[in-house]
Design a protein around this nucleic acid. Structure first.
Lengths: 189, 189
DNA sequence: CATTTATGTGGAGACAATCTCCACTTTGAA
DNA sequence: TTCAAAGTGGAGATTGTCTCCACATAAATG
């Protein structure tokens, strides 16, 4: 996937330490509050090393969640094999909400990845969008879903859900959004 | 509205200058890139004065768009008088997309206001949410719309639209989201 | 196993942005 | 006109980001 060059032993060790530390901080919910330099100190490496491996905070976030996003994508493909297309899409979207709900860090990361002001979506965002696009395409072909709307709208909705993670009754509202999207996806009238 | 204390003449003058400058910068699209201190220099006041009037960038943004948000809210009430409730809601949501599309600054601001990590929504966000809530309530009472979903979901969708403002074909996708929401709001089957 | 080259390290300090502090100015009321 | 209260501005403290490079370590080579 990202394997272009084989890393030297110590480099790999440092990279892993950084990732492990970041994951902990993430799960604690402090990721976006902590000084970026402190990741280095926490992981026991120099700041230079941190910046060489992960030039930005977002790059680190994406690396941490790379696996999680990959799992999500795999799950999408899996569902596509097991269920009728429309149901696969529905199930996947519900699963996404579950995931986001369970991991504050993932929610914030996805929001950041997608909002990525730098223009192009980061790798994780693209992969996720592709998975959704595939589900939609299949469901359209199947006839269970209207064909006049692209997958982008769904990504936007997911984005809204992820970014609003701190609303008081987030969970209920997130479910409502998915309901809205799914019902809206059946043919108009 | 915000009038708790009568400002001294020079204070008012400075405040207005700051606001005027911010509005220009906003329309130019540079708001979130510009050094905060530079607003002061641009408006011809000291940094201390800037910080006294607007403690954070977000506070300034909200002040700038206070009027615009108020207009939007007024428009919502207006539509509610002119059209059948369901249509009023639809028209309003489309109008929101138009507004967001026309003003990059507003889009970013709304996203920031709503995402407001500080927990409670800022004044502008609350007002907007109230306006949407009223439209939804009326439409539900009218029978044109299902009653099992709250207005929060719509806010989330709008949030997604605003926050994703820089996606390549934002406009089409935003329209799709609204279509999805509106069609989803008709009774499920 | 010695030597060489490529690869990677760490942290001091340059840089950049935010925000505070307070000696001074302006306002408006008495 | 005088004076207290209100407001000002900008130097510089503070805090976070990121670069640079003298040095260390790992693998390749003979």
């Amino acid at each position: 996937m990202t394997a272009g060059k084989p890393l030297r032993a110590d480099a790999q060790r440092n990279r892993d330490a950084l990732l492990a530390t970041a994951r902990e901080v993430f799960d604690a919910g402090d990721f976006f509050d902590l000084r970026f330099d402190d990741f280095a100190r926490l992981a026991g490496v120099g700041t230079g090393t941190l910046y060489r491996h992960f030039p930005t905070r977002e790059a680190l976030a994406e690396a941490v969640y790379h696996k999680e996003v990959a799992t999500l994508c795999a799950r999408a493909r899996e569902l596509q094999g097991e269920l009728p297309a429309a149901e696969a899409l529905a199930t996947f979207l519900r699963a996404m909400v579950d995931h986001i709900g369970a991991h504050e860090g993932l929610a914030r990361t996805l929001a950041t990845l997608m909002a990525s002001r730098s223009g192009a979506l980061a790798e994780g965002g693209k992969a996720l969008e592709q998975a959704v696009a595939d589900l939609v395409t299949a469901a359209v072909a199947d006839g269970g879903i209207r064909d006049d709307l692209g997958p982008g709208a769904i990504m936007m909705a997911l984005h809204g859900i992820g970014a609003a993670h701190d609303r008081p009754d987030w969970r209920a509202e997130a479910d409502d959004v998915i309901t809205l999207v799914l019902d809206g996806l059946r043919r108009p009238l």
